[in-house]
Amino acid sequence: MVAGMRFGFEQIRRLPLALFVLLYTVVTGGPFLWVATMSLRTTSEIFKDPYGYPSPAHWEKFADAWTKSNYHTYFWNSVVVVVIAVALVTVIGAMAAHCLARYRFRGNRLMRFLILSGLVLPPQLLILALFQILLDVNLYNTLTGLVVVYVATHIAMTVYILEGFFMQIPQDLFDAARMDGYSDFEIFWRVTMPVGAPAIFTTVTLNFIILWNEFLFAVVLLTDDDKRTLPLGIMHFMGSHQLDVGMVATGLMIAILPVILIYGFFSETMIKGMTAGAVR
């Protein structure tokens, strides 16, 4: 940073850059700050002055929003669905990726094409039929059904990322393992998985974030209040507090805060995870 400011001239030239950077930071962060202030103010305070500082800060609104809504259920549902779906899609995807990357067999390319074609399947193409199919198999309006759909729709991306990484693992490692008498499954579990851990971590992060925020499948495939995931819960909360902008802001903050918190601790991992499909 300092190195870039060698000369006074350079610094002057950098002023527009610094200003732009500042401006964009405000553009990104401003809306969050605004919602944060609103979340601590009552609606009447907000309507008096939408951009005021929260004084006094109504912290009790958070307790209010949490207890008067079903947030704990939504939150828990999201945790259950996302954790199980991510675990399944990771293991299943890693197995498939390992198989496609390591073994040469007839149909390899077909298999790979088949699975990776999932990358371009729009959810809208699936959703109506998924709705019928889940009904047929009695998984409609169940968290299980949502998990299954999440796994199915995120296998392609997972395999895509993992396979690319697994291919780069040197073949020698596997040859050595085989010499040591490892079975195929042991090779997967003891070589590919540990060596591929960074990539696996990446897909876990990516899938976690995407599924945590998923809306379309959830809105069509779940109906009961006590099965709602967090994004649906927020929508519902907003609906029942139409006039109460302050309360909706509090509700939003409850959804935003955990993400920001986790992001604060694991920012690099999360950045890497989210962009994994694009950075190669």
Binding site: I84, N138, G145, K227
Partner: peptide
């Protein structure tokens, strides 16, 4: 079959 497997994971939640 998948449903059964998955519901075994989820347990009685649903």
């Amino acid at each position: 079959a998948l449903g059964l497997v998955a519901s075994a994971f989820i347990g009685g939640a649903a």
